[in-house]
Each structure stands twice: as C-alpha cells, then as structure tokens.
Design a protein around this nucleic acid. Structure first.
Length: 811
DNA sequence: TTGTATCTACTTTTT
DNA sequence: GTAGATACAA
C-alpha cells in the first residue's frame, strides 16, 4: 500500500511502464460490449465531452473504457490523466476496473482520486503560496531542501494538518467565546455551516459579497476572517480550504496554473452534477488550455445541493465549453421494467430537467412493492422478517443472499430501529457510512499524541490530550496553561513548561503535567534522531502516555473494540516510512471499508447509496416530513422538494429486481410518538407498476387500521423508564467532545404496578430495548422474564421486573 | 477536579 | 432518545 508515496508523481512521467504495457493490450477487451453511445463517449478523445448518463446505464464502464482508450492509443500517459471522483470508493473502483481492462497494470494513474485527495497533493506542494506552511526552506518554498538533524538533507513538503468537522467546530467555539459573542445566538455548528457554504462558493473572507455578509450580521464574516487567521497560525486547513486554497493558487499564480495545464492533458470528472462552485472553477481553470475535459453526470441524480453543488454546472456545460460533444446514455441495464417505470414516474414530477428517456430491453419482473405499517418498529420487524424469508425465496421470487439486499434510509437516525431489530433476531447487517475509522474518539486521541510527538507546537493536539487520560488538569489548570502560552507568545507545550517553571501549578496536576511534558519531549527527540522505528515510537507513546492503560481500565462495552482500533492504527503505520508521512495521509486512507466475508444486509443512507446497486432494496420511512424531509422543504422550498424527489429517484433506481417502499402511520420523533402521513412521493408512483402488500401486523391491519387500545401491557412495558431503574447505570465523561451514557447489563426493569398485574405466566411480551420475551413467573409484584438474547435466537437472558412505586414512574 | 443528576435543544444528507 | 450544558455533591 505504498502507493500513497507523495513523491513527485510528475517526475514519473518519464517512465511509460503502464502505457507501454497497455499498448500491448488488445483494444477489443475494453471496447467489447459497449453500445454505440458508450462507444462514442469513449472514442471522442479530444475536446469537451459531456456524457449524460442515466441511472444504471453503464457510465462507470464507459468512463473506465475511456481511460483505457487514452492509455492504449498512447494519447496520454498515466500521469497526464486527471480523473476526479467524489468518493474514495468510486476512485478505488475505477482504478481496479482500469486495471482489469488493461491486465494487471494498476500502478500509475497517480491523479485518479477525489477532489479532496488531489487537492491535498497539490496543496502540499504549494501551501506557502497561501501562507500556510510549517516547514519553510531558504526561499520560503515548501519543497525546499532543508538541513535537519537526521542527515545532510531531507526533502520536505508542507506539513499542514487537516482539520475535520469536530476540530473545526471546537476552534470556532473558541473564537466565538473570545469575541465575546453569545454562543446561543451564534452556535459554532451553524457558523461552521455558513463558512463552509462560503468556501464552497470559493469566497475568501474579503470576497464574501455584501448582501451575503449583511445577512449574517457582518459578524459572520469577521469570525470567518478570524478563523482563517487562526488556521494559518495553527498551520492547518479544513476540508473547504483544500479546494479554496487550490483555486486561489490557480487564480493568482499563472505560472503554477500553466504548469498543471501542461501536465494534466486529459481531465475526466465523474458525477459532474455534484460539483460545487469551487470545484467548477477549479476544473474550468485546469481545462482552460486544451478543453480536453470529459464530464459525466446525471442531472436527475443531483442530491448534494445542500453541500453547494450546482446542477447549473451540468446544464451550462455546453456554454462553458463551446463545441462540446454531448452523448446521452439512456439504455438501462440494471433494473426491471417496473422499477425503471416507477422511478421515471416519480422523477417526472420535477421541472427543469435536461430530460432523458431511460429504457430497458428487459421485460417483466417484480412490480415495485408498497406497504404501510402501524409504526416504525413494526416496519423494522416486517422488513427483518421479509429479509429472512427472501433468503430462502418468498412470494415466488428467487432466493437472495444477504449481500444482495440493502435498506436505504433518508436520515441516519432511522437506522437504529433496524439495528435494534436485527440484533434481536440475530440478522447480520453492516452499516455503511457510519463514523469513519479516523473519526473515532480513540483514533483521534492517538493521532493527537502522534502529532504532538512530531511537532511540539501543535496546540490543537495538545488541547485534546492534556487531560486524556485524566491527569487532574481541569478547566482551571488548562486556562493557566493557555495564559502562560499567550503571555509569552509560545505554544501550549512551551506555555506548560513555563508555568511549571514558575510553580504556577501544584500538587497532582503539576506532577502529571511535568510527566506529560517530559514524555512529549522524549518522544519528539525520537522522531528527530530516529533511534526507534516509527512503529515502536507509536507504541511507546501510547503506553507511556497512559492512553492504552486508560482504555484497559475502562469497563464500558466499547473499550475492547477501542483497543482493537488502536492496534489497527499502529498496524497501519507499517505502510509508511515515518510518522510524518502517516499523518499526512491517514485521513485519506483509513477508510473503514473492511471487506468482510460474512454475508450481511447493508443499511445506509440514500446519499451513501449513490452509485451502488442491489438485487433487493428496501426504502422505509416514506412519510411526509421525513421523506421528503421537512427541513429541506422549509429551507429550500420547491428546490428542496425537487432534490428530495431526485433522492427518491436515486433510491428506486438502486434496485435491480425487487424494490420495496414502506411507510408507517406512527413514528417516534425525539422520543415522542407522532402520527405520520404517507409521503407525497408514494402517490406519485405510477399505479400500473406497483403492488400493494398487506402487513400481517400485530394490530392486524397496518396503515389505516384502527388504533390499538392504548396501554396494552406491551406498551406499558415499552414505556418503562429503563434508565432510571435499579441495575441501570449511567455513565458520562466530561470533556469537550464526548459524553456518553451507557446502561450496564440490566437486572431490573421498572414498570408501573398496575402493569405488573396485567401479566400472566407464559405471556409473550415485547420490550423496546430487549425485544421479545416470555413471562416465566410472577412473585408478588415481580415478574421473571426471559428475553430473547440479542445476536442469537436462543433465549438466554433472564430479567427480574420489579414494580415501581407509584411516583417512580412518570406516566 | 471529577462524578452524577437534570435540563434543554435538537436529527437531513458528506468530502 | 440523545448529547451537551449546567449545577452541585463528593
């Protein structure tokens, strides 16, 4: 995995290994099986090309064939091709597919990646042009050859750190407080969103238009400027900066731009409908000379408007690049006739489309299935049962493996219902797009230690770990350190040293802080002398800092997993020569796409599902307010609704054979029950292509059935206040970033006394946390219930259910 | 300084 | 139903 070597990829241009080998490959291999439209898109090599590719029309196939064609015909060398995708996954897939097309020649194509990963590479070379750089050579050049302690010379590049959303918010919060602004009126989260929006439009603080600035009270812009200033001091950039800075460099330094225009002779862009203004400018600048740009997109699949994506970019392609060759891919190879028709029916409700008519040669197949449920939990239950049934074949359909099925939700909080249910019945599932590996608490902590070891003045990292694990350094002590640092104009680490020197701290805190500082100094020395390998160093840091021990002593259920992750982190170091190299790239490689062998149902958001396909797809939660999302409609009106509709279109078109749409009449929102109306998109489905299923339902009728009697014992149990019952423990950790409360293993569930008398031995009960159980016995006001244990269907866990005092239970 | 209970405000979607 | 903020006890 040493392909992340940041060595100058351009220099490799002299080495034509891949193209040489590719030349030898038979052209027929990659042109085979392409339809005329795809072939046209592949073979029109020069000048601007816009590929309007509908869902499932083989656009990735065409795109990869185009790359193969460029290489095979000797039109471009691997490093002269700039191919941009939106996700790492898409980039990886494209790389693999090009490799397959051209034999095993996958090395090369150094400039195939996401906008972000490419910008990181570019920015590492030119960061000094935007004033960001911790490593400066004689002439202020980041590439400078520098004398270091390790040897005569070392080739260094800018070592800025990339902040993630958490860091960003933490920083903004500090600035808001420092500016004496009310945190309630200017929540850091919101400000981060506003600034992000500005960056997506490639506005630097001084370039934010008046009207926009005024809309945010001007303070927004002031804070933005202060934030950028702070980032420079910290030698850091955030996600938005990666693009913003790169665009600024291209705009203000013609020589640099010209160089890249010469280098990148062919540009390919996937998912062009999702480019935002900054990305658009970036592309237009780079393609400015030769116009050899090929964009692929589908205006009907534009679902990132909230992130600044402009469908307008695709609509105006022909204006931006006169003489553009437009190719439409309209033959769908993925879905059945009914599924395609249903999707087309829904998307037809949108105005202002480029308009494509997808068609398929495949006839027949399953109609789209529609089903209404009583509530969200029943929906999850039904889908769970249906998935189990589908494995052996149900309703006349072929059996499907779990890997062939997916549940696509609008908002990630919808996932929990499914996870809960699947745990209860022991159905293997995988959540795609959860917190990424490097976003996890323990990884971020460990990384902060590593960052500090590499450079002692990384204040953000210092702040993060001074008191993790607990060192008796609370708010007061940390303020003192900050003060000492600010007064002397030094880093927090130096500040801490000064504070200790001046005996500004006493007792345990002082001792621990001194130990930490000594440790940091020691580790830093190792990075300089290289007396230990970076892997050993990482282990030393984690051990000596007490961080590993901290998790070993932790008794929460996650602790073992976190220790595992730490081990994995250290293992990942093997792919790098030193810590610096690792730190530069970790955020790009640590994608937690572990390919596990076990068959599992996938659960993901509709956004995460773009580009994927599954034989069977479930689309739950089609209720107005949830989908289309109320917020989207409130904020963006018709435009928002249309984007939601495109999302519906994306969802349906993920399905190859079976698509099941469902909604519930009642759903818990913020812990409160709310009745829901079916989504307006449900009524937009063309009836001829839909079958309505009847749910078996505990209440016997699904949506529209009479409401059940309130307070059945099941409900009483479900309402039990689990967190306040004996045997449940709440856990909290103080700290800027996390606070968790977790129940230990339950012994007792408290329900109200009246409910206890409603139980009889042998009753089948249902509890929202534990799932199904059976009442084994009743002693006075105590019930003995055996719950089906999560993860297997065997009944193992046994709980005592005690009646609460009348005033214990807030009904 | 740390641990715990209680109040409050919030949940789209992501590189 | 959750996580962060806050208040207060240990």
């Amino acid at each position: 995995m040493s392909s992340f070597d940041d060595s100058d990829a351009f220099e490799a241009a002299a080495r034509p290994s891949l193209s040489a080998r590719a030349m030898a490959a038979r052209p027929a291999t990659y042109l085979d099986g392409l339809n005329p439209a795809q072939r046209e898109a592949v073979e029109t090599l020069n000048g601007p090309v816009l590929m309007l590719a509908g869902a499932g029309t083989g656009k990735t196939k065409a795109l990869t064939a185009r790359i193969a064609h460029l290489l095979t015909t000797g039109t471009a060398r691997p490093n002269e091709i700039l191919a941009v995708t939106f996700t790492n996954k898409a980039a990886r897939e494209m790389k693999t597919r090009v490799g397959t097309l051209l034999g095993e020649a996958v090395e090369g194509l150094p400039w195939l990646g996401t906008f972000h990963s490419i910008c990181v590479k570019l920015l590492r070379r030119h960061a000094e042009l935007v004033g960001i750089n911790g490593v400066t050579g004689p002439n202020g050049a980041s590439d400078a050859v520098i004398e270091t302690a390790t040897g005569p010379t070392t080739h260094l590049k800018s070592n800025f750190t990339i902040l993630d959303t958490d860091d960003q918010i933490r920083l903004l919060k500090q600035l808001i407080v420092a500016a004496g602004i009310d945190e309630k009126r200017w929540p850091a989260r919101q400000l981060a969103g506003v600034i992000d929006g500005w960056k997506n439009r490639a506005w630097t603080p001084d370039a934010v238009p008046e009207a926009e600035a005024n809309a945010f009270d001007r303070r927004g812009v002031e804070l933005y400027a202060a934030y950028q200033q702070r980032l420079v001091t910290l030698n850091a950039v955030d996600f938005g900066d990666l693009l913003l800075h790169t665009v600024s460099i291209f705009q203000n330094h013609d020589d640099v731009l010209d160089q890249y225009r010469r280098w990148f002779r062919y540009i390919l862009v996937d998912e062009y409908q999702d480019t935002n203004v900054a990305q658009y400018l970036w592309l237009r600048l780079l393609a400015g000379g030769h116009h050899n740009i090929c964009c692929v997109g589908d205006d009907d699949q534009s679902i990132y408007g909230w992130r600044g994506a402009e469908v307008g970019n695709i609509l105006r392609f022909e204006k931006d690049f006169p003489g553009a060759h437009v190719v439409r891919l309209e033959q769908n190879y993925r879905s059945t006739e009914h599924i395609l028709a249903a999707a087309s029916g829904v998307i037809a409700g949108n105005k202002g489309r480029l308009g494509k008519t997808l068609w398929t040669a495949a006839k027949g197949g399953e109609k789209v299935r529609l089903i209404g449920h009583w509530d969200g939990e029943e929906e999850a239950r039904w889908i769970g049962d249906e998935i189990e049934a589908m494995q052996t074949g149900t309703r006349g359909m072929d059996p499907k493996t779990l890997n062939q099925m997916a549940i696509l939700v609008r908002a990630s909080h919808q996932m929990r219902a499914f996870e809960d249910r699947f745990l209860t019945i022991g159905l293997p599932y995988r959540v795609i797009g959860g917190p990424r590996f490097y976003e996890r608490l323990e990884i971020r902590d460990a990384m902060a230690y590593f960052r500090l070891a590499v450079s002692l003045d990384d204040d953000l990292a210092f702040e993060r770990i001074v008191n993790t694990p607990k060192r008796g350094l609370g708010d007061k002590a940390q303020q003192k350190i900050q003060m000492a640092a600010r007064q002397n104009g030094v880093s927090l680490y130096e500040g801490a040293r000064i504070l200790l020197e001046a005996k500004g701290l006493t007792g345990k805190g002082a001792k621990e802080l001194a130990r930490l500082c000594d440790g940091l100094q020691r580790w830093h020395a190792i990075t300089l002398t290289g007396s230990r390998s970076h892997i050993e160093l990482a282990e030393i840091v984690l051990d000596e800092s007490g961080y590993t021990e901290h998790w070993q002593n932790d008794k929460t259920p996650e602790a073992p997993g976190r220790l595992e992750n730490l081990k994995e982190l250290v293992k990942a170091l093997e792919n790098f020569d030193n810590l610096q190299g690792f730190l530069e790239h970790v955020s790009l490689i640590m994608d937690n796409e572990s390919e596990d062998a076990e068959a599992k149902v996938s659960i993901m958001t509709l956004h995460a599902a773009k580009g994927l396909e599954f034989p069977a797809v479930f689309l739950p939660g089609w209720e107005d307010g949830l989908f289309p999302s109320q917020r989207s409609m409130d904020e963006s009106g018709l435009k928002g609704l249309e984007e939601e509709r495109r999302l519906a279109y994306v969802g349906i078109t993920r399905a190859e054979e079976v698509c099941t749409i469902s909604f519930a009449a009642n759903r818990r929102v913020y812990g409160q029950w709310q009745s829901q109306l079916p989504s307006r998109f449900v009524d937009e489905l063309p009836e001829d292509h839909v079958t309505v299923l009847t749910p078996p339902g505990l209440y016997g009728g699904g949506y529209g059935a009479a409401a059940p009697q309130a307070d059945t014992f099941e409900e009483r149990v479900a309402k039990a206040d689990v967190y306040n019952s004996p045997g449940w423990k709440r856990m909290q950790s103080r700290g800027a970033n996390y606070q968790t409360r977790q129940p230990s293993e339950a012994k007792n569930i408290v329900i109200d006394a009246e409910a206890v008398s409603a139980f009889a031995q042998g009753d089948r009960v249902f509890h929202q946390k534990f799932g199904y159980g059976i009442v084994m016995g009743i002693e006075g006001d105590k019930l003995d219930i055996e719950f089906d244990k999560a993860g297997s269907k065997k009944v193992v866990a046994r709980f005592l259910v005690a009646a609460a005092q009348a005033d214990d239970v807030p009904f």
